[in-house]
Amino acid sequence: MKLYEGMFLLDNQAVRENWGRAKASITDILAKHGAKVITARHWEERKLAYPIKGRTRGTYLLAFFECGNEGVNQMRRDFEIDDRVLRYLLVNAEALPAGELEKSQAEGAAEFTLPTPPVEERVTAERAVFGELADRPVVDRSRASAPAPDEGDAAEGEESEIETPAVGEGV
């Protein structure tokens, strides 16, 4: 039995519904594979450095547990399957950090409440690739040669410009 540190990035939607249930979903998977969960707590709710599965924000859960090595390999599969877990990281821990147990126990107290995660904007495939550029109106370069003070008039004006030389050639 080795001590492991597990960090889990959870979908904010699951956290918004019920933090206790989201946390239990992780600890249940750990327990299912024979791990002894020592601590499990809310680490942070933050903006992600890059969008993951269309989410721009996420909640991190930090857990310390003791487990045999076969159990760790099997639980990885379960974390991959679980939709609420966006990312996970399991690393060996030398020792339980000081204060970790207290922070975890404080979460079990009755007065513990978690601030509701802020509503995020879902990231479309376009936004994931182009970022802010995806929000800009599309400019048709082929038609934007002439300065257009008014869009409605400009569209008509450009059409007549194209037609005029054609008529001239015909005559």
Partner: peptide, 11 residues
């Protein structure tokens, strides 16, 4: 690299 994987730091 671990922080990048967890979305804490940018690639």
């Amino acid at each position: 690299k671990r922080a990048r994987h967890m979305g804490l730091m940018p690639f």
